[in-house]
Design a protein around this nucleic acid. Structure first.
Lengths: 257, 257
DNA sequence: AAGTGGTCTAGACCACCGA
DNA sequence: CGGTGGTCTAGACCACTTT
């Protein structure tokens, strides 16, 4: 029952999908022109175009302009879910080893990249609830808030937000700009980071984050949350690192216990 | 030089962005109606709509229909890059602990989810180049190829492709359906997985993968590649697990060496 | 009732590029 | 030259929701 007063989008979409399937089954790769499709389905060319837009966004079609252009059905080459090429890990990504507590600059240099750090902001702030709870200080207590952009070969790699207890590390910001924080904590305060707990998930880059990282807004990024503790198990710092998903590979080795 | 023969898209986009900035600076949250904007900028309403589409896709606007609807400028609430709420890890995601070699069903049960496994395919195949190299067998040699869908509380969580040397584990598929593979390898073949090397990156779900995982095509997924070895350091299996990014959190603990 | 965004139409011009 | 996709216009009707 395709009533005349309902929108045509579903009908057009369904018809186009059926047509694509039919063409694919026959091995025909080019759809009829938009104008021809509009005539056939009895709708305007705009309606056809919106339907094709959807299928192009889903990578089912590729559209090319020009005399011999048209809408081409995406090859049935990727017929296998999780194809074997995914097993290849040689692609040129920057590897972040989760087995070691290592600074980003050392990590980059070891892989042949030229590291750089841009301090976006360094400030003394009252601690938000969650941060205070993690650091074990009262809400609103003073914390050092660092926001740093890491670059590899001049291209943004990650954006890092770090919080430290300002009363435990007085005058920390006087050492600005801070590049190797762990070294500074060790030499100036005698505090060594012994263990880290990290969690990893995928989030979307906000407009601001995307601008700093040089990606499109709402592109996926890897969010690595970290809580670092000293030898006594006391929390030293907590951070969130946002890594560009297109440049990063995380690595971890596990020994069965 | 806005020549009359060039497309208006850039001009309209620029004008809309300027307007949004101006409104945001004044704290006004609702833009004029599309018809009003079309009159003001001297273009058709469709042109305005395409511009607004872009800004809506970038989350700069939210549009609501109805009498008191309109285009609303996204609040300046997320003014801080990497805002503190990101430090909260209590969100209800399924945690995959990278520190232990543990099966997915056990992991899910420990977190109060009801695990389920759907065997998508189990087959004997000739090994692709990369897989053969990892397993240390000749290209084209027989491998057992498993494709399994993991569900938590009935909702897809991950899709796993695993390859094993078929000559090392003869008759493996006779035990089908295989649910706890590591247990089977231990009991039937006396092989115990001792170590795993894993790498993690973000990829886009192909149409097929998206269908199985129940997400939209080209949504980001976490790809976890694994190479498992026995006590002697011989490779036992290699896998790629694709986790739904919206349901998964990875966790890892590190001790400084 | 009136105004909003969402959709659709019929027609036009453009850049591009092979026949 | 002719046909392709990409863009734009002017106008219309719709569902929806506040006035």
């Amino acid at each position: 029952m395709t009533g005349p007063d309902e929108h045509e989008r579903e009908r057009v979409t369904a018809a186009l999908e059926a047509l694509v399937d039919e063409y694919a089954a026959q091995g025909r790769e080019r759809l009829p022109s938009e104008r021809a499709l509009a005539l056939t389905l009895g709708v305007s060319r705009n309606a056809i175009r919106r339907g094709l837009d959807t299928m192009e966004a889903e990578r089912r079609l590729v559209r090319l302009p020009g005399r011999s252009g048209g809408a081409f059905i995406t090859a049935v080459i990727d017929a296998t879910p999780i194809p074997p090429f995914l097993f290849d890990t040689r692609a040129p990504r920057i590897v972040r080893d989760l087995d070691t507590v290592q600074g980003v600059p050392q990590m980059l240099r070891a892989q042949g990249f030229e590291p750089a750090t841009r301090i976006v902001s360094e400030a003394l702030e009252p601690a938000p609830d969650i941060v205070a709870a993690i650091l074990g200080i009262p809400t609103g207590g003073p914390v050092v808030s660092l926001l740093r952009l890491r670059l590899a070969d001049g291209i943004p790699l990650s954006l890092e937000r770090m919080y430290l207890d300002a009363e435990r590390f007085p005058g920390l910001l006087d050492h600005s700009p801070i590049h190797s924080l762990y070294t500074l904590l060790s030499s100036a305060f005698g505090v060594n980071v012994a263990t880290s707990d990290e969690t990893i998930e995928v989030t979307a880059a906000s407009r601001q984050v995307a601008g700093l990282l040089g990606v499109r807004p709402w592109e996926p990024v890897l969010a690595v949350r970290r809580i670092s503790r000293d030898d006594a198990g006391v929390v030293v710092e907590t951070s969130v690192d946002l890594f560009r998903a297109d440049r990063t590979r995380l690595a971890v080795s596990t020994v069965r216990t």
